[in-house]
């Protein structure tokens, strides 16, 4: 094989690679669009009137996750499955976003932490790398951390909306989450930076709970909720 032929072969490979990336980029863009739509749906829970509509909003979000599933389904066809990490950077960001959205929906529905398995199911992907397009554990954790920050906002806004029970429950939840994250040994990477942010979310929620408790507002809503 001549040098020219060799380089031609490599050029063919490189072009194919670029085409794959171009295809991926396009699908990822539609996925980002859907993610923004779901976010818009869920943002309304921060509105004064939004707290009552949580079930509706979650329902609507769940519907949009169908689109997400089909778009990810499309994404999967764009590259050989065993080269996931070769193209990882392309979808990493959006996958963290939709993980966040899934985690947020699940929290709003059941006040539990979505498991990696659940996220995978909602997104129509796998947990284990061997089985196909999967959710990397770091991406799952990043998504969860984005949700934590959203919950601190929710704690603030729920008080504005006059609902005093959320902050306490969020506080319990986020504290456990914090304990969980403390078990991890992270590298000096974006995930670590995000995790540093969790401390501020915990702090903010604690402040809300404090504000409520010095005003004796910590009991009522609990009761109200039991009704």
């Amino acid at each position: 094989m001549s040098v020219t032929e060799m380089f031609s072969n490599i050029q063919v490979f490189l072009c194919a690679d670029q085409d794959v990336r171009e295809d991926i980029r396009k699908v990822v863009q539609t996925l980002e669009q859907t993610a923004r739509e779901i976010l818009t749906v869920l943002q309304s829970v921060h509105q004064p009137t939004g707290f009552k509509e949580i079930p509706n909003k979650c329902f609507r979000a769940r519907e949009l996750f169908c689109t997400v599933r089909s778009q990810i389904g499309d994404l999967k066809t764009k590259f050989p499955m065993d080269q996931y990490y070769r193209f990882h950077e392309h979808w990493r960001f959006v996958l963290q976003r939709v993980t966040f959205l899934a985690a947020f929906v699940v929290y709003l529905e059941s006040e539990t932490l979505v498991t990696r398995e659940e996220v995978a199911e909602i997104l129509g992907i796998e947990v284990e790398r061997e089985k196909g397009f999967h959710l990397d554990v770091e991406d799952y954790l990043a998504g969860v951390l984005i949700m934590a920050s959203e919950l601190s906002r929710l704690a603030v806004n729920s008080v504005t909306a006059g609902d005093y029970s959320w902050p306490l429950r969020i506080s319990t939840f986020i504290n456990e989450l914090d304990s969980g994250f403390r078990l991890l040994n992270l590298k000096n990477d974006p995930l670590r930076k995000r995790y540093d942010g969790l401390k501020y979310d915990v702090k903010k929620i604690e402040e809300v709970v404090y504000d409520l408790s010095i005003r004796g507002l910590t009991k009522e809503p609990e009761a109200e909720r039991d009704k």
Partner: peptide, 23 residues
């Protein structure tokens, strides 16, 4: 829960232990 020690056997903690191992 909030005030007492975090239950180290809670499912959430258990899953984080597995994440620790994986990472």
């Amino acid at each position: 829960d909030r005030d007492s020690d975090v239950n180290s056997l809670s499912p959430m903690i258990a899953s984080f232990k597995s994440f620790q191992l994986e990472l």
